[in-house]
């Protein structure tokens, strides 16, 4: 009997991502007729985000739903490319089966011994704040938001006009409470409402980033499997991605409704405001990405992005 370890770095057992990997594990076990035994590890159970990723790259975790750090390869920062896709339709085209973005991901993850199996989209990011908010670059100057420290996330938020502070997830709540930061950025509304809903007043849907998890396998583990099991992993992960694509948009909308019901104000910037952000951010951040990620990849993105 083969034992596989599946983990996610974001999401406890009752979060959508946690439920998704549990389902994935179940399908693998069923599909293998009991030949494969799957152990599931949720957020923080095997350590921090970086630690789980270490285990994954080293093959001590076999499959992952990951929001990876860029520590092993800066090119992984491509998953955080701002204003790469602007609508669910574009996203589906880019990240779907054999989509142009998927090809890039395959190449980037392949470089560190991981096999890209597909996207697991969450939706478009926004900025959640307390007491104050902004729908344009100028007004954002007085607002300080928490960012993840991975390139080019801080650069993106600064290009959007915000002051940034890199904080670990565990410190975000108290930092908002005590005023060290005014809010959080770069997440879909689910996380901000779920974890900081009682503190935050506004969610501005800037849509500056298409947030997606990555369904991945350790390449050594995968290559060592029988053809039958390989196909099983491919089929189950494709199913996981398809289900998510059809459900994520509705889920994000439901989460918005839930947050509004809970007293959060949901704000969509006007088309002009979004267009201005798009230009400013692409001008400021994409050239930086060229240095870090490589001109060839950025050329592909430039050619395809709307």
């Amino acid at each position: 009997e083969i034992e596989l370890k599946i983990a996610t770095d974001s999401g406890t057992n009752d979060a959508p991502s946690g439920l998704a990997i549990a389902k994935w594990a179940e399908r693998i076990e069923e599909g293998s007729n009991g030949e494969i035994d799957v152990k599931v590890f949720y957020q923080d159970e095997l350590g921090s985000q970086l630690e789980v990723f270490d285990l994954f790259v080293a093959g001590e975790v076999d499959l992952m739903l990951s929001w990876p750090s860029t520590s092993y390869d800066k090119r992984i920062g491509v998953v955080n490319t701002p204003f790469m896709v602007s609508s669910w339709e574009e996203a589906s085209e880019a990240f779907g089966h054999n989509g142009w973005a998927s090809e890039i991901m395959n190449e980037v993850f392949g470089g560190i011994g991981l096999k890209y199996l597909g996207a697991w989209p969450e939706g478009f990011a926004g900025v959640a704040t307390r007491g104050t908010f902004s729908t344009n670059i100028e007004d954002a100057n007085d607002i300080k938001v928490r960012v993840q420290p991975f390139f080019p996330i801080p650069n993106t938020m600064q290009a959007l006009g915000y002051q940034t502070e890199a904080l670990e997830w565990g410190e975000v709540f108290t930092s908002i409470q005590t005023g060290v930061v005014d809010g959080d950025s770069g997440n879909v509304i689910y996380w901000d409402y779920e974890f900081f809903g009682e503190l935050l007043d506004y969610y501005v849907h800037t849509r500056h980033d298409f947030v997606t998890g990555n369904i991945l396998a350790n390449a050594d583990t995968f290559d060592g499997m029988s053809d039958e099991h390989k196909q099983l992993i491919l089929d189950t992960s494709a199913k996981m991605m398809d289900e998510r694509f059809s459900g994520a948009r509705a889920e994000d909308e439901a989460n918005i409704a839930r947050a509004v019901e809970g007293g959060m104000q949901y704000i969509e910037p006007s088309e002009e405001e979004v267009a201005a952000m798009k230009v400013a951010v692409r001008d400021a951040v994409w050239p930086l990405m060229e240095d870090q990620i490589g001109a060839d990849i950025m050329d592909k993105i430039r050619a395809k992005a709307n």
């Binding site: 001590e60 670990e168 410190e171």
Partner: peptide, 18 residues
Amino acid sequence: TNTTTLFLQGFRGLNSVI
């Protein structure tokens, strides 16, 4: 135990802003 990343995990724990 596989020790490939064991010491690295100790490093990760120490390498903390908190």
